[in-house]
Design a protein around this nucleic acid. Structure first.
Lengths: 338, 338
DNA sequence: TTGTATGCGTTATCAT
DNA sequence: ATGATAACGCATACAA
């Protein structure tokens, strides 16, 4: 004979402890509003019965969930992991929980997940980048759910954001590359559609070229999804050109790692035969050989600030600011002068 | 003048469409039980009002959430990312959503998250490994929430599981290492307490040694958290021994990557001066130089099967099986004979 | 300090 | 095919 699994409720606790449900609720939420003696008794029965508050019921009654939702493009590479970790640590310290979902870089899926997280009662949202359907912003505004946009800097947007200027960062790196005497730049970019970070990075290269009286239109560019193997394939394709590029600038470190690997397979020496640059400065950048010259992004700081900003918006009901972080160039071995 | 954000409910839709809430609910959930004409009218008002069902209310009334929870030790490295991706794809295809949280390898935090996910109404749980407090298993049993244990094989456990025999896998690799003539094995292991995978892997090495009439007790072992830098530090420490180890076997690829990097910094050539092995066969394993000899784990398959198993347990109410997967040794350049 | 009573937005049962 | 209504488990305004 097995007894049917009986899930204890507030009522059960109240009955056993000989108090009202309100008192039990107060013991759990506002301890100071109940006498030490009854609190002790109540907590003991909570323990005995193995009572766990039903989250959904609590959310309905309180209209708050202490839950933040985050939608990132992917968990499959480390770009967002570190920032998200800091984000979640900061939230946790403030008594919030984090719900993460990934959109696989698909805008429709992101839109769907925004609705799902709001439907679950998320008090606020962390989104990556600024490029999405206006309908999503309208939806959030209508529901009164604050959101902060990370990994991007959007001077023109009305939303709170924490990030950096992808375009300026890549322009800075390109300036360095040009100053080192490189004449033929080729680019492996992430998919630009729906991704303002990728777009900004490519634009940065183009701007630098124009500022140096070079024509950006003749520059070879391959657009491909952020995966190592894609970086390798694109690199090999770019290397068919005659004359060869002197440097291949990549939209992120993952693509650059693929490029470096393929270079070795092709018998090309980096940086003597060709230089390669990345973006993000994830751990991978210092593991590949030669180590990657890249743009360092303060991921953890970004996550922390995003959390602080979001909590402020939720609790103080303020509109949220646009916080811009500084990035820096990390010179390693994959780039040298010609 | 801004109008207060009015969140449309089922009632609102019902009123505007001129039907009862029951009918609206049926339109959303059991379309066949409502006439085509009213359905059309209802769906139109749903659209117009921008109605989204309240998840928490739905969960309370229906006592099902179509949500699965997963608790992984970390998102910071790629070990679990790929398996989780496949897990979630399979779930999605079956109409389930996935909630992920990470325990940072802390047992108490995992216990807390189990309660949190169950409190949120998760229909089932994915957990990593089998080593946790009995109280957690009791809790799940009492609540009637099915769980499948992944990344582990637990012949003695009563729980459903999908995984491989960590011990046997490492024993197999060690057999290979010994057959290649290695005489002095050193080990960089993950933290063993609370981690049956790490424990099994170390035990596998010891078993192989004993089977070859070697004394496992004299083997140098450093236990450290699964981070690249820790692998580097441990490697350097192990290399102080006189005579030096001929091979350093690592508990996973991340530790091995750190070891390989430090070897280069120390001016040691891998594998001529010392061999290094990993475990998991994540992408990193083929990126480091020399590429890593390691144990290939079918992460995606594991995720997919775990999802199938869990859905079965939920929908068919069957107890769940123990599925064991095969692993294989991947010979690359970081290991050679002496 | 404690208790009573209402409402949160659904689903599901039972009528009609 | 559709409607009325009772749960679901909790927080909270209001009373005592």
């Amino acid at each position: 004979m097995t007894t049917a699994p009986t899930i204890p409720t507030l009522d059960d606790v109240a009955r056993v402890a000989g108090v009202s449900t309100a008192t039990v609720s107060r013991c759990l939420n506002e301890q100071q509003k109940v006498s030490a003696k009854t609190r002790e008794r109540v907590m003991k029965t909570v323990e005995e019965l193995g009572y766990t508050p039903n989250f959904n019921a609590r959310a309905m009654a309180a209209k708050r969930t202490q839950t933040i939702g985050a939608i990132i493009p992917t968990m499959e590479n480390a770009i967002f992991a570190r920032g998200l970790q800091a984000f979640q640590e900061t939230l946790h310290a403030a008594g919030y929980n984090l719900l993460v979902s990934s959109s696989a870089y698909q805008p429709e899926m992101e839109a769907e997940q925004i609705r799902a997280l709001v439907a679950r009662g998320a008090d606020g949202l962390l989104l990556i980048g600024s490029e999405r359907a206006q309908a999503s912003y309208d939806f959030l505004a209508r529901r009164g759910v604050p959101a902060v946009l990370a990994w991007t800097s959007t001077p023109d947007a009305v939303n709170a954001s924490v990030g950096f200027d992808n375009c300026a960062a890549m322009r800075m790196l390109t300036d360095r590359v040009l100053a080192m005497g490189h004449s033929r730049i080729a680019v492996i970019s992430g998919i630009i559609k729906g991704n303002d970070r990728a777009e900004g990075r490519l634009r940065g290269i183009q701007q630098s070229l124009m500022a140096h009286d070079r024509n950006p239109d003749t520059m070879p560019v391959i657009e491909t999804a952020y995966e190592i193997e894609n970086g390798a394939i694109a690199f090999e394709a770019l290397m068919q050109a005659e004359p060869r590029p002197t440097v291949v600038m990549c939209g992120n470190d993952v693509l650059a790692a693929g490029a470096i690997n393929r270079a070795r397979q092709l018998g090309l020496h980096v940086p003597d035969d060709v230089s390669i640059t990345g973006f993000d400065d994830i751990e991978l950048a210092s593991i590949v050989l030669p180590a990657l010259t890249t743009v360092h992004v303060p991921h953890r700081e970004m996550g922390r600030i995003a959390a602080e900003e979001l909590i402020n918006m939720i609790e103080k009901r303020n509109p949220g600011a646009r916080r811009k972080l500084e990035v820096s160039i990390v010179m390693r071995d994959s780039l040298e002068g010609v």
